[in-house]
Computed example of a mutant assay.
Amino acid sequence: MSYDDKIFTEIKNVFLNKFNDCCILYQKTTLKIGFDRGEDARWFEKNIIRRKKDSSVISKASLNPLKRIITDYKFEYSFKVKDKDKLIKLLNER
């Protein structure tokens, strides 16, 4: 298992423990997360994606709904992880 795969596995496990219904994919350098519940999506957007100061991720806006990868979920976000430890800490604060 490569270093990047280990990081993804660690992040994926935190997401699956903290959110009721989500799916997370790893595509090269970008992570994609899908949420079914609006409450989970709003929390993630407010506390992770839109966080300006000391952000742990770089948001990759996916404005074209036809390019959605995670089609079984209502809300989808794409992002690159800048600081894995900080992202995991923020997710664990949920």
Results as ranks from 00 to 15, higher is better:
residue 42 R to E: 07
residue 19 F to H: 04
residue 78 S to E: 15
residue 11 I to S: 08
residue 27 Q to M: 09
residue 27 Q to R: 10
residue 1 M to T: 10
residue 68 R to K: 15
residue 74 K to D: 09
residue 54 D to I: 00
residue 26 Y to C: 08
residue 73 Y to N: 09
residue 76 E to A: 03
residue 62 S to Y: 12
residue 21 D to L: 07
residue 28 K to I: 13
residue 9 T to V: 04
residue 82 K to G: 00
residue 24 I to R: 06
residue 30 T to E: 10
residue 8 F to I: 02
residue 12 K to T: 03
residue 33 I to P: 02
residue 92 N to K: 15
residue 40 D to W: 02
residue 20 N to G: 07
residue 16 L to K: 14
residue 4 D to N: 11
residue 54 D to H: 14
residue 68 R to A: 06
residue 58 I to H: 12
residue 12 K to N: 06
residue 46 K to S: 05
residue 9 T to P: 00
residue 86 K to V: 05
residue 88 I to Y: 11
residue 81 V to K: 07
residue 88 I to N: 08
residue 70 I to H: 04
residue 6 K to W: 05
residue 2 S to D: 11
residue 1 M to W: 05
residue 58 I to K: 15
residue 93 E to W: 02
residue 35 F to W: 04
residue 53 K to M: 03
residue 48 I to E: 04
residue 36 D to H: 15
residue 57 V to F: 04
residue 33 I to V: 15
residue 35 F to M: 06
residue 88 I to G: 01
residue 36 D to F: 10
residue 75 F to E: 04
residue 92 N to H: 03
residue 82 K to H: 00
residue 61 A to R: 15
residue 44 F to N: 09
residue 80 K to H: 10
residue 75 F to R: 02
residue 33 I to G: 03
residue 73 Y to T: 03
residue 47 N to V: 00
residue 27 Q to W: 01
residue 14 V to W: 14
residue 22 C to Y: 03
residue 86 K to H: 07
residue 30 T to A: 13
residue 28 K to R: 14
residue 42 R to H: 03
residue 59 S to D: 11
residue 79 F to H: 07
